[in-house]
Nucleic acid binder design. Structure first.
Length: 636
RNA sequence: GCCGACGUAGCUCAGCGGUAGAGCAGCGGUUUCGUAAACCGCAGGUCGCGGGUUCAAUUCCCGCCGUCGGCUCCA
């Protein structure tokens, strides 16, 4: 066998992954929970027999892959615990997921939060017993019969979904007291699950289909050790503190009200942030050859029939009747931009034509899916449509990737994942057009040296897309930017340009957004920064605090000078104690606090304090002005 | 939309079949203070909305609306 590090080992015929690990060291043997053979993606059971001349990656409990095995085993243990508490429960599925695991069960008893500690107690007993996870091959048809007899419909259905000749395996623990249909792998024994928590209850449809019965889903998580579990739980708690809905209220940025469900009201501070972001994008547009337009809000429904939105998107649209004409509020800007394009006969010399629009969009979202700023019914995107010749696609996408990297870097989103989404079921356009578009995007990504994952069937109805997903400070993923290629709308709206040879040709449309929606981006930014926006974005950049009434005159002079220089300044001349005013400024996440007391009045200076807790010492008025202008210039 | 939980003062939360409470914020006053909360007082609520049960409902039941956690969907 060959090991990951390239070393080779000889083992007797029939040796398993674990034997191999044992032969290297006793501790490695014990830590082994599975393995990979010949670089295959699946993790195999540690009992898997090795064939001759294979290469093996040993998966140990403390690795990332091992964690997946631990979590999967924890989900079995949780299922066992629930069956002990409610013997009539029917098990559906229980996989390991990103941050833990879940198990879907069908149970007459409504599980309540009070039940969770009971489930944990049962699980602890099962783990303390430390019984082996045994793997057994079973006869598919016999097991389907057995499951049907017990009315174990979910397992029966799962097995029926497997091919006739599939190898069907069960995993047992507790000496056979619990068994479950499962491909595995699992840890050697229940005692390997050393740190777990049962977290919450949710509803979930069987097989994710809302036509099916709703099951009860119990979420939990497990880690290699207690310390990692604690860290994870602490991160969840920190995320709760940074929740943009909570900070949005505390910082006076925005609020929501039932009079307009899922439609945020932006307060003056939130609006400042909103406008500053837009202003930044406009600066970027100026450098990249974009032209901004303003387009209507409500259109005759005929437009949406023509664009394909009515057929493919009407469930997400708002309709209204005006002068007996049926109209729809725009959910996207693209059809309007085809009209902008078509106002003139276009020459190839004008292309690429880049049309940007901060138009307000409305999309009807089902009541259960809306959330804070991240999923709303009215929003605006940093939207633009690029009308280009087919051979300009590559260079436009390359330039877009550059813009995207620049913008995300500015907000310190350092990790970026890229997804290429292909043709969905509901779509318009010919196979040939789709193939060309998908290949075009893939090529452009490759040309830019970008690693990407393909999401089959996840494209927009008019074209394939590239999505850009960033990781925030708490390692949560958010989709921001998108680039969508569209050969269909230009056809539907019969757009053309005159080529160099005098022939009329069809342009391609590139739909693109970098921040995504401004609303959602603000929500993400609040959580990413915990409300500590960079100086250039902060709604209130500086707060000036007087120590006593005698200092108000000089403090006012400082405030006026800064305000005149364009710095967003507030004053706190209330009769509270200095400590209390400092505290208020901190809680408001104001980047700079200038304290003015007797000494400062005398020297005509200010005492500068920078968030989070840096004393910048005493500075002259001109020095702080220079500092702030510098920060603004550098977008720091 | 579906499953579950929740909805009490501007905010965070307590209470509970018998006239609704705290802290913070707000307002008035005292204090003029040097880097994370001075002190005293006042005011603030048809207990989400509608119906039902009851002598009596914020409390129990039903419906609706909204919020939260998920499912599905998605910028």
């Amino acid at each position: 066998m060959t090991l990951r590090d390239g070393s080779r080992r000889e083992l007797p015929q029939g040796a398993t992954i674990r034997d191999l690990a044992q032969s290297i060291g006793k501790r490695l043997g014990e830590a082994t929970v599975g393995g990979r053979i010949d670089g295959a993606p699946e993790i195999l059971d540690f009992r898997t027999q090795l064939s001759r001349n294979c290469s093996v990656d040993v998966v140990t409990a403390d690795s990332k892959d091992g964690l997946e095995v631990i979590r999967h085993s924890a989900s079995h243990i949780m299922a066992d615990a629930m069956l002990r508490l409610w013997p009539d429960a029917k098990l559906a599925i229980g996989p390991a997921i990103e941050d833990g695991f879940y198990y879907d069960i069908d149970l007459a008893h409504r599980i309540t939060p009070e039940d969770l500690p009971r489930i944990e107690e049962e699980m602890a007993k099962i783990i303390a017993a430390n019984t082996a996870f045994e793997r057994c091959r079973v006869d598919r048809n016999a097991e389907i019969g057995r499951a049907r007899e017990r009315a174990d419909v979910y397992k029966a259905e799962l097995m029926e979904g497997l091919p006739e000749d599939a190898e069907v395996t069960f995993y047992r623990h507790g000496g056979g007291s619990f068994e479950d249909l499962c491909r595995g792998p699992h840890v050697p024994s229940t005692g390997y699950v050393k740190a777990f928590k049962v977290q919450r209850i949710a509803g979930a449809y069987w097989r994710g289909d809302e036509k099916n019965r709703m099951l009860q889903r119990i979420y939990g998580t497990a880690f290699f050790n207690k310390k990692e579990l604690e860290e994870h739980l602490a991160r969840i708690e920190e995320a709760g503190k940074r929740d943009h809905r909570k900070l949005g209220r505390e910082l006076g940025l925005f609020f929501l009200d039932p009079v307009a469900p899922a439609s945020p009201f932006f307060l003056p501070k939130g609006t400042q942030l909103y406008n500053r972001l837009q202003q930044h994008m406009r600066e970027l547009y100026r450098r990249h050859g974009y032209q901004e337009v303003i387009t209507p809000q409500v259109f005759d429904v005929e437009l949406w029939h023509r664009s394909g939105h009515y057929a493919n998107y009407k469930d997400n649209m708002f309709f209204t009747t005006v002068d007996e004409r049926e109209c729809a509020v725009k959910p996207m800007n693209c059809p309007a931009h085809t009209f902008i394009y078509a106002t003139e006969k276009r020459s190839y010399r004008e292309l690429p034509l880049r049309i940007a629009d901060f138009g307000r969009l409305h999309r009807y979202e089902r009541s259960g899916v809306t959330s804070g700023l991240t999923r709303v019914r009215t929003f605006c995107q940093d939207d633009a449509h690029i009308f280009a010749t087919p051979d300009q696609i590559q260079s436009e996408i390359t330039s877009l990737i550059g813009m995207i990297r620049e913008v995300y870097g500015l907000f310190q989103f350092t990790e970026m994942k890229v997804f290429l989404s292909t043709r969905p079921e509901n779509s318009v356009g010919s196979d040939e057009i789709w193939e060309r578009a998908e290949a075009g995007l893939a090529e452009a990504l490759k040309a830019n040296g970008i690693n990407f994952t393909v999401n089959v069937g996840d494209g927009a109805f008019y074209g394939p897309k590239i999505d850009f997903v960033v990781s925030d400070a708490l390692r949560r993923d958010w989709q921001l930017g998108t680039i969508q290629l569209d050969f269909t709308l230009p056809e539907r709206f019969d757009l053309g340009f005159v080529a160099a040879d005098g022939s009329t040709q069809r342009p391609v449309m590139i739909h693109r957004a970098i921040l995504g929606s401004i609303e959602r981006f603000i929500g993400i930014l609040i959580e990413h920064t915990g409300g500590n926006f960079p100086f250039w974005l902060a709604p209130e950049q500086v707060r000036i605090i007087s120590i006593a009434d005698a200092h108000v005159a000089w403090a006012t002079e400082v405030a006026s000078a800064l305000a005149a220089a364009g710095v967003r300044t507030n004053t706190d001349f209330s009769n509270a104690k200095t400590g209390a005013k400092i505290r208020d400024a901190r809680l408001a996440r104001v980047p700079f606090t200038l304290v003015v007391g007797g000494r400062e009045c005398e020297d005509r200076t200010v005492a500068v304090r920078e968030r989070p807790d840096v004393d910048r010492g005493v500075m002259s008025l001109s020095a702080v002005q220079e500092l702030f202008l510098e920060l603004e210039r550098n977008k720091a």
